[in-house]
Design a binder for these strands. Structure first.
Lengths: 152, 152
DNA sequence: TATTGTTATACTCTATAACTATA
DNA sequence: TATAGTTATAGAGTATAACAATA
């Protein structure tokens, strides 16, 4: 068949995301985290006392998968869980002091990573890229799917 | 901490790639393929009688992982392997008639998918997006990594 | 009955190491 | 010795289903 012609956008999208995220995850790994646990910490940072279910929705994974990752974070001493006294079904996840310190360190690295991307693109191309990505997300998103994080 | 400020580019990149690829893989699944096996068929289409090792390099997976996927493709009747008579260590992978037909069908769907992306973006934004992705890939690629396909 | 979260289990993709067979 | 590929095994991330505790 010898498929020739313009390279599909999806190919470039896939390759770039892969290349960029391999570097990003290398950084996370140096802090003992992976993509999922980093997204969980971000979700914790953006909500006040979220339930595990809310965090799972924000991250885009199942409750069972979240339990798995939260256990790892807890074993690492970065988060602490307590049952909500007003509704003892609910687990309240909070960063420990150590977790807050780790978050701050990783957040610094993540911001530096973002600055590197913006610097190499320049402000106009950065804006164009973000606009294009947003257009594609709107076009292909399914209602009811949250998901910033899936298996890739 | 309440991290506020501009959304990181990586977040958008990740989310868009996820949303787009979930739809793409839904299409592939309707044809009985997944991302890895589709990339393998693409690699077969672009080279003449490649060895398995060459295909693995092109796809960006290990030899052992390739064996795994090729076995699935063979079980599905889409490819056929023969030992190279000139060097019996080498497996030559070829599409079967059924494989060629499946490839053509999926390729049509993949092109339609690409047209949909280009249509919603428009020609200028498409070009800008591809340029930005290329810039990022160049910035973050590591020499010696082939990789169009990894786990994401 | 409904909801929150956990456990048990399993599946998929991936890799490394050890191996076979060929060269 | 070196190379192409396979097998055996394991690990990471994910999910579904069944469950316990609580409401």
């Amino acid at each position: 068949m010898k498929t020739r012609g313009a390279r599909p956008i999806g190919m470039s999208l896939w390759e770039t995301t892969h290349v960029v995220y391999r570097e990003f995850e290398r950084m996370l790994a140096a802090h003992g985290l992976n993509r999922a646990t980093w997204f969980i910490l971000l979700a914790l940072d953006e909500a006040v006392h979220p339930t595990q279910r809310e965090v799972a929705r924000a991250v885009g994974i199942s409750d069972a998968t979240l339990t798995h990752h939260v256990r790892n974070l807890e074993d690492a001493g970065l988060v602490h869980r307590t049952r909500d006294p007003d509704d003892r079904r609910v687990q309240c996840i909070e960063l420990t002091d150590e977790g807050r310190a780790a978050f701050a360190r990783i957040h610094d690295d993540a911001m530096a990573f973002d600055r590197r991307m913006r610097a190499v693109l320049g402000p106009e191309t950065t804006a164009a890229l973000l606009g294009a990505l947003d257009t594609l997300t709107t076009e292909f998103a399914r209602p009811g799917d949250s998901t910033p994080i899936p298996r890739a």
